[in-house]
Design a protein around this nucleic acid. Structure first.
Lengths: 186, 186
DNA sequence: CTCAGATTAGACAGATCTGTCTGGTACGGT
DNA sequence: ACCGTACCAGACAGATCTGTCTAATCTGAG
């Protein structure tokens, strides 16, 4: 075990930050949940904000791994699988929206490391969609990828704030509408 | 002047909450900005959370007024005008996303008054879209209104986190794609 | 074995937070 | 003239926050 204390802290922080928000969760609560001394916490993370940024970059790599696990089939199927996954996760228990969007709501400064981590995730997702659409021969991959990101954001927000079960039923329809350029035949 | 102190507090709170988030803005800062004594603050608002809820319900009525100002023409034109307005506001200076989504990120409990205020806004917006689509003779108003709400959320989030100027260019296209049911001719 | 680094519990400083309270001033209706 | 209400300035209590520090213990590599 290279550094189990650090990962215990990151695990606890992930759980608490996602469930309750960043500013409402104090360092004391994190170290209590992680079973770690305060000095150990500040040994691994210079400040609390460093931990928040680490939390987000960790979430980013996890999402990337999840997306990689969904790939393998034809590109269009991968796109649909990603949004099926969003709909499923959004209806699951403990869903609290998007960790990046939620964190960004608490960090107004676009230059802050937390916001930079958010931007990194978004660039990755947009690029992934663009590449998949291009591989699928979509006539307008860049534009459509942008709209797909908009759709993703709306879905994760809606799955948190509205009835996720209802949203789940029309996710596929929404994706297909977005994938179809106006004036183009199906 | 019925109660100028109260509105000064609400104005200051609106500005600060929206720009910096709810939990980061303290009561002391609000009353300083509003030029109001602390006792006056607690005379008008029982707790800080009451003020947060008041902030959101106020935002809701303002959005309703803004929407009413956009109406008047044919229903479909009103829908498009609403999204044009979203794109414009999102590209304006000081845009920080959706006050409701941002506040919800800081209030996990769905039963909390703040979250209830958020839900009220969302029900209104969804109903407005549904009615407009129905009046326009859209074949699937309820479903499409749900997707329009998803689109709205994605747009306001994207206008905050990404390049709002770029998003503005494709907002109209996104709306039109969403308005077009799959398998239907334009 | 030895020694450096990781970890522990917890006190501590200094700031900030919400909400209460005191005490006094200004004003408007009756 | 009187009284209730709004408003003011600011102290205060009690909790909580981040980050530092002490001092001791555990552990693993050389």
């Amino acid at each position: 075990m290279k550094s189990s204390a650090r990962s215990r802290v990151l695990d606890a922080a992930t759980r608490l930050f996602y469930a309750d928000g960043v500013h409402t969760v104090g360092v004391d609560r994190i170290i209590a949940e992680a079973g770690v001394a305060k000095a150990t916490f500040y040994h691994h993370f210079r400040t609390k904000d460093d931990l928040v940024a680490a939390y987000l970059t960790d979430q980013c790599t996890r999402q990337q791994q999840a997306a990689a696990a969904l790939a393998g089939g034809p590109p269009r199927a991968t796109v649909l699988a990603v949004y099926d996954h969003i709909a499923e996760a959004g209806a699951g228990p403990g869903f609290r929206g998007c960790p990046f969007i939620n964190a960004a709501a608490e960090y107004p400064d676009p230059a802050h490391p937390v916001r930079r981590a958010v931007g990194e995730y978004r660039r990755w997702f947009r690029g992934l969609m663009r590449d998949l659409l291009a591989a699928d021969g979509h006539p307008d991959p860049a534009r459509t990828a942008d709209i797909l990101l908009v759709l993703r954001d709306g879905l994760v927000v809606g799955n948190d704030l509205d009835d996720a079960g209802e949203l789940r039923k029309l996710t596929r329809e929404a994706v297909e509408r977005v994938l179809t350029p106006r004036g183009a035949a199906a």
